[in-house]
Design a protein around this nucleic acid. Structure first.
Length: 489
RNA sequence: GGCCCUAUCGUCUAGUGGCCUAGGACGCCGCCCUCUCACGGCGGUAACACGGGUUCGACUCCCGUUGGGGCUACCA
């Protein structure tokens, strides 16, 4: 049977470099063994999934050059490849589980579940569902449903004994069943959770090797149980170490730019970023760290992946990117790349209208638009303080704005404007006074092209990064301050 | 708190019992090249978390401690 791997991102935000890393490993493994690599969109969270995010994910992976053999855009023999289009499968298999007595309907309220959790925690017992609805008879269940009481479907988990998970990198991992929760498989809205959808789809799509982030280790027993209940062969499992912040915590956008597209906006070449990620899984041949995709496929081996979570430190990426720029491109190719970077998707057409009324000579454009062609800005803290806000209010404003921006479902000019107006409200300052330091932080100057449009065009990631730098220049904010300032947002 | 994963220079790593007085790369420092700056060349700085075992011999195997991380949702 041929090797089949997949990357299964959830379209709930900006495509993450961690996704790129996991995708790369899955890609390399599949290609190394002459198999297929698929892309599946896991959008069973109907509230948070967005089409924009899905589009961005495809664009980001395409940009990196990781092409998939089957996926929502290219189709394939095991489609559809978008979970929101596969509901009948999940309903059917959940029904099978229910009929066989491997799952049960649960009518508990969130309040009751929360109370159980609190109690378990206090008693130092493993948290999890207490089995309350296990004893509900079919007749009772039918009555409750008829009365319109909403329910979920939970997985029945043995209360005794243990299970051994075999990880390709870590060997056997033993779990006591008593520590495994009776997970929800079908939510009250009728949609499956990750656990059910993932197992059903991996089986139906013929996935042979599941390579995913380390964060999934603790749910592996539930998945193993599902495969057993269904009588399906279990794919090989391989849990990859998580990319980390400098402080070793799981890579997060609060501490680091994490968006793949941010790195494109910053002017990294896709092959350099890919190469940088590959260094975590492919040993350099004869000490040469610059590798193209085919070379990576040849040299790749899961046994080369170090289990210690690597810090995503882009210093080396800078060096690698420099080498690609000066060694791998001739003058014509370099020029083409610059053009592509600077002018893609009608970039000029979007920014020129902002500048037109503000210039007298075309040569004024250079200064006025420089920040659209820059990455991080070296802002002068004195310029940030020139307005009417004191240092504390400034820092508060940046922190609050950052939190509001992160919470926006859509990155549009009106939503950005609303956020900034909100900051003015909260800090009790005039909008014009609040806006000024943002001009400095984002565009580098208090006299510039319109702020909200600039932010929208630059993208959320780069805006977050420039705000982060500005905040740092003002002395930063302790986590306590941040917590206090964000309270009640 | 509970369960699980993990531990070599600041960072990414090589190392699978003797080849290790631990190798490479990035960063940093110094020197050279040079109209500046880069690039490039040369050199330097710097690590096996700790404690027990196993063994003739442990960076490598086992146990413990400590540190780090993940999970602990009707999110994935």
């Amino acid at each position: 049977m041929s090797v089949r791997t997949r990357i299964a991102p959830s379209p709930t935000g900006d495509p993450h470099v961690g996704t790129a890393y996991v995708a790369l490993v899955n890609y390399l493994f599949a290609k190394k063994h002459g198999g297929q690599f698929l892309l599946r969109i896991e959008d069973t969270d109907r509230a948070r999934s967005t089409p924009e995010s899905e589009r961005a994910i495809l664009e980001a992976l395409e940009w990196l050059g990781l092409s998939w053999d089957e996926g929502p855009d290219v189709g394939g023999p095991h489609g559809p490849y978008r979970q929101s289009e596969r509901l009948p499968f999940y309903t059917r298999y959940a029904g099978e589980l229910l009929a066989a007595g491997h799952a049960f309907k649960c009518f508990c309220t969130p309040e009751r579940l929360e109370a159980v959790r609190v109690e378990q925690r206090q008693a130092s017992r493993p948290p999890g569902y207490d089995g309350h609805c296990l004893t509900v008879s079919p007749a009772e269940a039918a009555a409750l449903e008829a009365a319109g009481v909403s329910h979920v479907v939970r997985l029945k988990v043995p209360r005794e004994g243990s299970v051994t998970i075999d990880d390709m990198l870590r060997g056997p991992i033993v779990f006591e069943w008593s520590t495994v929760d009776m997970q929800v498989l079908v939510k009250s809205d009728g949609w499956p959770t990750y656990h059910l959808a993932n197992v059903v789809d991996d089986h139906l799509m013929g996935i042979t090797h599941v390579m995913r982030g380390e964060e999934w280790i603790s749910s592996a027993p539930k998945h193993a149980l599902l495969y057993e209940y269904f009588g399906w062969p279990m794919p090989k499992l391989c849990h990859l170490p998580l990319l980390r912040n400098a402080d070793k915590s799981k890579l997060s956008k609060r501490k680091n730019p994490t968006g793949i597209l941010f790195y494109r906006r910053m002017g990294y070449l896709p092959e350099a970023l890919l190469n940088f990620l590959a260094l975590l899984a492919v040993p350099p041949i004869d000490g040469e760290e610059v590798m193209d995709l085919p070379t990576m496929v040849g040299a790749f081996g899961v046994e080369h992946i170090s289990l210690g979570g690597p810090v995503f430190d882009t210093t080396k990426l800078d060096w690698l990117n420099g080498r690609y720029l000066r060694e791998k491109l001739d003058d014509a190719a370099f020029e083409a790349r610059v053009r592509e970077w600077a002018l893609r998707d009608g970039y000029l057409e979007r920014i020129l209208p902002l500048a037109r009324s503000r210039i007298e000579r075309l040569s004024d454009l250079g200064q006025l638009l420089a920040h659209f062609f820059s990455g991080r800005l070296d802002v002068d803290p004195e310029k940030l303080r020139e307005g009417k806000l004191d240092n504390e209010t400034l820092r508060r404003a940046f922190v609050i704005a950052g939190a509001l921006f992160d919470a926006l479902p859509e990155w549009t000019v009106p939503s950005i404007e609303a956020s900034i107006r909100r900051v003015a409200e909260i800090t009790g300052a005039k909008l014009r006074d609040v806006v000024r330091p943002f001009y400095v932080a984002i565009t580098g100057s208090a006299q510039s092209v319109p702020l909200f449009d600039s932010m929208q065009i630059l993208g959320r990631d780069l805006v977050r990064e420039r705000l982060r730098i500005a905040l740092e220049r003002l002395g930063g904010a302790t986590s306590k301050e941040q917590e206090a300032w964000k309270k009640g947002l």
